[in-house]
Design a protein around this nucleic acid. Structure first.
Lengths: 139, 139
DNA sequence: CACTTAAATGCAACGAAGTTGCATTTAAGT
DNA sequence: ACTTAAATGCAACTTCGTTGCATTTAAGTG
């Protein structure tokens, strides 16, 4: 499926978000790349948009299940596009976030074999896995 | 092995840190509990110590391998005592951080069966696993 | 196409979190 | 007791994120 401006507008509208220039800019930038973005990268993309608007835009995207937070130990929060089956309620699946120490990109990766975590007598609700190392492209 | 004030002082000195009252207070508080602490909890423990000193104390503890950051998605950074084999270089082992949604405590947990994460063509250097749910005590 | 309205934006101000420089104090070795 | 490098406290500052409010705009309606 090709990504057009119209399809991006429709995506926003389907989540009850107005298709404003700033939102289209951020969302299509995210669609074009395969890695997560930080707030400062979003600021660079939208040079003359007020930072308050950007904070609110990110928040609305998270609320509506368009993006999710992909945390990384030492630095900024990274935001990644949600996949299609991502809803507002369930952001985290059996995927993980990989931070490459060489190219610094944060990507969502999916495991062929599901991770088995056994904690007797605990109830597990959410699992976040963050890995750092050298990514496929840099290796 | 019993934990005495003297043994805590020695621990500090063995890492080339002066055994000051504030440091002893924080470190022995950490030794007494089985869960990680946040900065604001440290502030409560050391009421009349300047927050700048607390920031610097935490930093020195992290630098010297006494504590490590145990991140949690939504809230503050939590700090946990390092185990004995923890050095300044290698903070993260095959353990994970568990945040209980009921009692709010963050604890380090160890897996009997090691987690197997297979990412073909990637080089894995560090793995951080954070889990939320209901802990053993609350369950 | 003009009109309406709720949503989105920009601006100013604020608050919280963490940092830096510098003067003073203190732990610990001599 | 003396010395000195390390640790602390204070003041000031930066950065990050938030809130209130006035203005603008997307998108539905006649």
């Amino acid at each position: 499926m090709n990504i057009t401006i119209e399809s991006t507008k429709d995506l926003l509208r389907s989540r009850k978000l107005k298709a404003t220039p700033t939102r289209l800019e951020i969302l299509s930038a995210l669609q074009k790349r395969n890695s997560a973005v930080t707030f400062s990268e979003i600021q660079n993309i939208c040079n003359d948009t007020d930072r308050v608007t950007l904070y609110r835009t990110i928040q609305s995207f998270v609320d509506k299940g368009l993006i999710h937070k992909a945390y990384q130990s030492e630095d900024e929060v990274h935001y990644a596009l949600c996949s299609h089956n991502c809803s507002s309620e369930a952001h985290f699946h059996n995927h993980l976030h990989f931070k490459c120490t060489r190219c610094k990109k944060v990507t969502c990766e999916y495991l062929e074999e599901e991770v088995k975590i056994i904690l007797p007598k605990f109830q597990i609700e959410k699992v976040d896995i963050t890995i750092s190392g050298i990514c496929k492209n840099c290796n």
